[in-house]
Amino acid sequence: MTADEHKGEEKDLQEEDLEVGLIGCGNWGRNYLRVFHELKGTRPAAVCDLKEENLSWARRHHPGIFTTENYQELFSREGLDALVIAVPASAHFALTREALEAGRDVLVEKPMALKTDEAQELVDLAEQKGQVLMVAHTFLYNPAVLKMKGLMQAADFGRVYYLWSTRAHLGLVREDISAIWDLAPHDVSIFNFLLETLPLKVSAVGGKYLMADKEDVAFINLVYPGGIVASIHVSWIDSHKVRRVVAVGSHKRVVFDDLDNLERLKVYDKGVSLEMSAESFGDFQFLLRDGDITSPSIKMSEPLKNQCQHFLQCIVERREPLTSGKNGLEVVKVLEAAERSLQNEGRLMEV
């Protein structure tokens, strides 16, 4: 699916009356409750969490909502059209599998699983059951990322040379997964989306400074078809918060800075390419471009709300989401290759 197709395909849902259940009402899960409350044609109808304080919060902010500490009650509850799973990553696979087996359409947070064979099992199960399975790669619903892809596909961007990203902050440490599985899914999904393909090979090195068994910082290198290379830096222990993705081409450079609310995208009309000299056949010369720096106009909207709207559309129309289970499986394959590389001192691994 192209960026333009994704932007232009959504229809009005206000005549629908879809009920959504949520498993996991922590800080991020609460955003899902807010969004489904604000969207037309749907409402959050039930929530499950193991902490009473989170259920109490849900009842205060969404009077009348059904709450429970037993997630299986949401699988059997009549009237629910879909489930959102926003729990720690180590529980994604098991809960998603049970939800699909119960005949529910599912939106699961990233990563959809921690092993390729588990992710493949979820994809196969969703197809067998005829259920919608969507993975919350939220950045693919960010208008700036969609715009970035359009800029890269334009002829005047030139040949794609390489991409790099940095996703770092101080704190927000996960107890069940490493920084790679927590942060890198964002950048892998963005890179795969921008290039419309998977990397062929991956290598990774990292450091364990806070916990003995989990990397809290990592550097991941990826080799894509056509000689395109990419690099991802993730960290939980960097005091300088960064959310940046850069694409460098022969004619232009595009920078997406998610923390810059005024100029989320910048386009540098600068580049270098190797051209054959017109004066001497067989000779080559470097051509440098040094043009303007522009910030294109973007009609911004909340990515999470766009994602949830798309999920509802896919439920109503029974179609495959942009970030389908297959898309989530591709991300897991890359992350698992990075994990194998970490365990083998940074050796290059095939995806």
Rank of each mutant, 00 (worst) to 15 (best):
A184S: 07
D216H: 04
S277R: 07
V246N: 10
L274E: 02
P63I: 11
A89G: 07
T116L: 09
L312S: 05
L22G: 05
G282T: 12
S178W: 04
F157Q: 01
V246S: 08
V254E: 02
K241V: 12
D49H: 01
W181D: 04
E9Y: 10
L222R: 03
D124A: 14
D292T: 13
M152R: 04
G346F: 04
V135H: 01
A82E: 00
A119K: 04
V229R: 07
S56K: 14
F286K: 07
C48T: 04
R243Q: 12
T42M: 05
L55Q: 04
L95C: 03
A179H: 02
S56W: 07
A184W: 00
Y162M: 14
L274F: 04
V234Y: 01
S273T: 12
M112K: 00
N261S: 14
V255Q: 02
L287H: 13
I85E: 00
T67V: 15
S301G: 05
H6P: 08
Y71K: 01
L100R: 06
V108A: 02
A179F: 06
G150R: 05
L107K: 01
D105L: 06
V254G: 01
Q313L: 03
I293D: 10
E52Y: 08
M1G: 10
I228L: 06
S235Q: 06
D238N: 12
R174W: 11
N142V: 10
D290R: 09
R244N: 10
K305W: 15
F281K: 15
H186G: 09
D258F: 10
D290P: 03
M349L: 05
A136P: 02
F157S: 01
I65G: 00
T166S: 11
V331G: 05
Q72E: 13
A113Q: 06
A126T: 08
A113D: 04
L288I: 10
E215K: 11
L288M: 14
E127Y: 07
D4A: 15
I220W: 01
E275Y: 03
R77T: 12
V334K: 03
H137G: 08
L183H: 01
